[in-house]
């Protein structure tokens, strides 16, 4: 009896650092966000914060800008992730072929990942600029009209997605490539023995075997894309109109430019809920499909 008590105490002591860390780094901030979201709290006002009940949440449901930012975020995540996955996949397969010189190219291709997103945003901002941008210079070289990359609703969204795709496709490639390299060659031989064409091997063997890697890279990229803010900050500030105002950017301007912490807090809470639910559904649906057919 006393021994089991000692064991339990030891267990508590052993897990306590991890629990404390979890409390300090996860539970407390989320709890605090909820706490803030239930108050009127503005750093810029001398008035002390005061309880607001669900006022901020109620406001959210009426706030067109908030609802717009949700759909903008969703659009961005969809475009960026899909393109990154498809391109990253294709590149991984190219790199996986044993052509000469690809090794160097593969190493070089990782450079964008190492760049600071803010810098990436700034560089793309200047490249896509209508007056000085090098890309529009090329466009005019071909006799075409300059394109409003950052001031047309559709193009601006695509431009931001493009910058994100430029930066993160190599990461997807890296993960898929690593997974490809670790796939056992014999399974493909088995497929060939069974009479599969190369295309069938891709769809029926390679793809299913890459599923865990795809799921991991999708989750990482999706979470990253949902909270993407740097590119919007550098490239469009959410414009034109609200065409690229993703949720984190609206949250940021509300919280850290207007210092409406309570309202921003309620957005943060909603964002946490969406991301958590999204990840849950995603993991259930994609990571664990019904066992093989």
């Amino acid at each position: 009896m006393s021994q089991s008590r000692a064991a339990r105490r030891a267990a508590f002591i052993l897990i306590s650092p991890a629990v404390l860390l979890l409390l300090a780094l996860n539970v407390f901030p989320i709890g605090f966000a909820v706490f803030i979201s239930l108050r009127h709290w503005s750093l810029s006002i001398v008035n002390p914060p005061r309880f607001a009940g669900l006022f901020n949440y109620q406001e959210l449901t009426l706030d067109d800008r908030f609802i717009n930012s949700l759909s903008v975020s969703a659009t961005f995540v969809l475009i960026a992730i899909l393109a990154e996955l498809v391109l990253g996949f294709a590149l991984a397969f190219v790199f996986n072929s044993k052509l000469k010189g690809l090794d160097t190219l593969r190493k070089l291709s990782l450079l964008p990942v190492m760049a600071m997103p803010l810098v990436v945003g700034l560089v793309w901002f200047y490249m896509l600029n209508e007056n000085f941008g090098v890309i529009n210079w090329f466009v005019t070289l071909f006799g075409a009209e300059r394109l409003p990359f950052l001031t047309d609703s559709t193009l601006a969204m695509l431009s931001i997605a493009l910058a994100d795709i430029w930066q993160w496709t190599p990461f997807v490639t890296l993960v898929i490539f690593a997974a490809l390299q670790s796939l056992p060659e014999y399974v493909f031989e088995a497929g060939r023995m069974d009479g599969l064409t190369e295309r069938e091997i891709f769809w029926r063997i390679t793809l299913p075997l890459l599923r865990p890697a795809i799921v991991v890279v999708l989750i990482i990229r999706a979470i990253d894309a949902v909270r993407m803010i740097d590119l919007v900050f550098m490239m469009t500030k959410g414009g034109p109109g609200g065409a690229t105002e993703v949720l984190p950017w609206y949250l940021y301007t509300t919280g850290f430019q207007s210092f409406d912490l309570g309202y921003a807090g309620s957005m943060a809470v909603v964002m946490i809920i969406i991301v958590t639910l999204g990840a849950q559904v995603f993991v259930r649906q994609i990571a664990n499909p019904e066992k093989g057919r």
């Binding site: 399974v187 023995m193 069974d194 063997i205 075997l209 057919r293």
Partner: peptide, 28 residues
């Protein structure tokens, strides 16, 4: 391979890890 109508059992089995036993048998 398939046209030769050859069956092969590999040293490390080379089973399709994403399929069940039945799925593996059905595959060919």
């Amino acid at each position: 391979c398939a046209q030769r109508d050859v069956g092969m059992a590999f040293q490390n089995y080379a089973l399709y890890p994403h399929l069940t036993v039945e799925g593996n048998l059905r595959f060919p």
